[in-house]
Structures are given as structure tokens and as C-alpha cells.
Amino acid sequence: MSILVIAEHDNAALKAATLNTVTAAAQLGEDIAILVAGHNCGAVAEAAAQVAGVRKVLVADAPHYAHQLAENTAPLVVGLAGGYTHILAPATAAGKNLLPRVAALLDVAQITDVIQIDGADTFVRPIYAGNVLATVQSKDAVKAMTVRGTAFPAAAASGGSASIEAVAPAADAGVSSFVGQQLTQSDRPELTAARIIVSGGRGMGNGDNFKLLEDVADKLGAAVGASRAAVDAGFVPNDYQVGQTGKVVAPELYVAVGISGAIQHLAGMKDSKVIVAINKDEEAPIFQVADYGLVADLFAAVPELSKELDTLKAAG
């Protein structure tokens, strides 16, 4: 068993999802290498070498890896694949963009959103928005899979002492280029790594009203999420979306405000430890999964919640 984990990073920092993927890799075997493909990404390689359980860090540093375009990164991974039985990437937008391209070039199947490892070739993954779990066995020589971060704890970011090895970059495919990006600026925790999430749905009415949730979120040290309906309506940016085709989260506490609870939304949050629902419609399906439900007008309840949190803080 030798496992290659594709690091998720922005050339400056290693993204947390990589740590969850390393934990999944450790369930397969001890021979774990991390590939850092980027440009001027030395700091990421250093960070990857500290991750507990990692033996080797491979660094491919070249200008055409700066934005990790799949057209360029996939051939690099394929060139390295010969030495590995498993190739793992986080089941994030970046991992899902890259790994199928790698798998097709290797002529192997790809297994998406692995939530459980039952053996070297047998994995469990959700289908139909997580309403059903499929146990699949791969017949391919190389198992290429994306790992759902919420299903595996993060590996320790320190304590490791992997060797760092430079690998020769593959050629620039020359068919794609990076134009620009528009990243959501926020001081709040990342949605997929947050301990508490406060999410709003169509019931919020408009984007301005999300300030009510942000206020509560800041008092709880929480991230702010949203249902598809709220994103489609333009209340908040797309990266807020929690659900089947958005982000999958499993925080300690998930507070769903003005969210009815379509199965597509539940698919993204039902593994949260504690779920709170605030909705004025007592028939809303969200109450069927909520540990604590409050049937109330959110425009009264959320400001009140904010005040209660102040009182709590004052009382220490």
C-alpha cells in the first residue's frame, strides 16, 4: 500500500481539508506521500512535512502550477502515479475538478466523496443526496478517490518530519489560463472547518437581513452558511451554499434559520452534532432532523438570540 495525497493549498498555506484526507490515507497504509503542486509554494511544502503520519512531500514548483489548473496538474499526477496504489484528494471543488481528469488518463474509475474505508479496495460513499450509502469495490490497479472531510478527523498539523523532495514539472499543456478570481472576504471561520455554523434560507427575505445572522455568528465564533434558495436569490455568494451540490458540513452546532429543509439541503448538514431550527412554519421538514426546534418569526427570534448571547457572555 502506498498512498499519494494531493495537497489543497493557495501557495501560501495548506488547506485544512488536506489533513482530513491524510487521516483517510492513514487508514489505508503507512506509506503516505503528499504532492504539493504550485508556484513559490515552499511554505506549503514545509507545512505538509509537519503533518503527522506523512513520510514524504513531493513538490512540483512551476509558474504553470500557480493556479493548479487541472489541464496542467493532471499530467503531473499521472506521471507520478506509477509508484502508488491509491491517489487521494479532498472532496472539494479543487479535488473534484482534478481527480476525475487524473483517473481518466490512468484509465481507472474514480470514487467520489468516500466517507468510510472498509479495506484496500472497498469504500462507502453517499449517493442520491446521501439518502442512500453505496459500498463499492474497485477492480482497478490504482484507486483514485476524493475524501469527504467531515467523515474523517483532521490529522495533526504538527509532529511529523517528512522529507521534502522536488519533482520535475510536466510541460504546460497550453490550453487554459487563469484570468482572475473573486474570493469572498471574511474574518469568520471557513464553512467546512467551523465548529458552529449559522445558516439562512429563503425566509431571510433579502441579503441585508443576513446581517442578523452575521451578528449572532460573530458572538458564537461561527461561520455563516446558506441554503441553495438563498444563494439563487442572490442574498449571499455561492460559496455560502450548504447542500448536496454545495458544501458538506458537520459542525458541533448547526443553526438553520428560515430554512425549510429540502433533502438537498439536509444532504449537506445532517451529520452535524446538534441541529437547531428556527422557522415560523411548524410543518417545515427541517424540524424532523432538528434536536431543538423553535417555531417563531426569525425576525423576532434572531435579535432575541443575539441579546441572550450577550447576557450569557456578561454572566461569564
Binding site: 459500498t135 469495490q137 477492480k139 411548524e282 432538528a290 431543538y292 441572550e308
Partner: peptide, 30 residues
């Protein structure tokens, strides 16, 4: 097919919890 589906099953169902009567009660429970 390259993948064989060995088994398909439904995940454990999450049970509905309780309804609270007020924001204060909610905060207390949490």
C-alpha cells in the same frame, strides 16, 4: 463497470428532537 456495488443501504435516520418554547429556553438547552 470498474466498480462493483456490493451493497446499498440507507444511513441511520436522525431522530427529531424537541420543540422549545422560547429563545431563552433554546439558549439554556444549548
Amino acid at each position: 463497470p470498474r466498480l462493483v456495488t456490493l451493497k446499498v443501504q440507507e444511513p441511520p435516520k436522525r431522530q427529531a428532537g424537541i420543540k422549545v418554547g422560547s429563545v431563552a429556553e433554546l439558549v439554556d438547552k444549548l
